[in-house]
Design a protein around this nucleic acid. Sequence first.
RNA 1: CGGGAAGUAGCACAACUUGGCAGUGCGCUUGGUUUGGGACCAAGAGGUUGCAGGUUCAAAUCCUGUCUUCCCGACCA
Length: 478
Amino acid sequence: MSKDNYVEQITNIDDDFAKWYTDIVIKAKLADYTETKGCISIRPYGFEIWENIKNYADKKFKEIGIKNAYFPLLIPENLLQKEKDHIEGFSPEVAWVNEIGDTKLDERLCIRPTSETIICSMYSKWLSSYRDLPFLYNQWCNVLRWEKETRPFLRSREFLWQEGHTIHETEKEAKEFTLKMLEIYSDILENLLAIPVVKGKKTESEKFAGAKETYTIETLMKDGKALQSATSHYFGQNFSKPFNIKFQNRDGKEEYAYQTSFGITTRLIGAIIMSHGDDRGLKLPPKIAPIQVNIIPIKTNDEKVMNVVNEIYKELNGSYRIEIDDRDNYSVGYKFNDSEMRGIPLRIEIGPRDLENNKCIIVRRDTLEKIEVELDNIKNEIDILLKDIQNNMYKMCEERMKEKTSVAKNIEEFESIINNNQGFIKVMWCGDNACEEKIKKLTSAKSRCIPFNEEKLYDKCFCCGKEAKHMVYFGRQY
RNA sequence: CGGGAAGUAGCACAACUUGGCAGUGCGCUUGGUUUGGGACCAAGAGGUUGCAGGUUCAAAUCCUGUCUUCCCGACCA
């Protein structure tokens, strides 16, 4: 196999990152474009990744008492209008239902871009006493935001997500819950998806529409751009007041509830591709890979080989997500490459030569290392390897993030980094939005977050020279 | 919403300049031979050339309009 031949099929990651990304989405059969502009179809292989993320997250949510519920896709206009900042943030990309058949509706309905408003209206109905609190509800659903420019998984007009909405008796409890959710998200990214994160708080200008505080986990993709991977918001009483979500508190007085919301989306699939993928294609962390082990028989028409292959399948099936590639119209070389492009963490090669020695070859996707394994030790070895791959993928990602994180002391340094290396740039900042604006205009990089673990890098704001208040991560973003 | 490029079979493209039967490679189907890093032989299927209009005996090709996609900037998960 020549490299040239290979490159015809997937664009080289360093040549054109954007094309490389969409090539993987299409060729690994994760998703495809549809007749509906800006909306993708998620194919089974991609959807199964989402299901694995969803199952893990859902379990974590339930462990802390969150319950799933469902709210309408359509929201009447008057509800959306109730919180001023919220509607201002979303109105340009909201789609409306104006008529049914030939009949115009008296009040038009929006297709949810997010569900704060409709959920608040129900919370107001359901809440009367502090004894009812907290409400910890979540829904898994789709939302619609009419983006002008789209990219599969990263920015699709319709996307799947989970939106949690909680209300609490006290400010303290709500704030704590906001941070607790950020920890769960960070666990999902780091432990499940093998992607290291920077946790922190958004600056005033980068907050969610209608939120008092927005917390975020930021990740760094292979091309050096940042991706906001999950957010958790503290609303205070910003929604509970206009939506009249009030209760009688322990003192018998009327009080408005304290609210949070939080979400992760199918964008995480994009994060997996861009954090781990390489020139051979997708590279999936074992914990979410739809197929963890791919058995490739070297001769599909050799009865002895196929018998052993079937035995191994029986032994492993149930413990691992496993598949036999017994297609007889492809050569093994093709299958090796196909398996690598689909990002399957491990493949087992078994042929007549192996049977003579009672051995097989196991190849790991992360390092492409080939390991000779005794036939009766396969299960044991796979267990070890899958765990090691999961850890190793995290480590490689973490190293890359460290390499692509730098400190800038002034605008000149900042510009030079952004134009060469990209990545995260750590700076000291005065807290003034004017400095953020200036940098955005100059370099198109935005503040990512004020990290929880702030360091004192130096004293003065990198941009204006005034006394610095915070350390901030900056970066170009998706 | 500004700046640039492109739309021809599932994919990548050719034919367009100079109008004259819709082509090549990959992929796909069937049969056979193969199988340790993208196999080979043979026979097939697949098209309203993005869409609409115009010029012409004749349009993928020339003209006008329109839609879509991709890349670079402003907005967003």
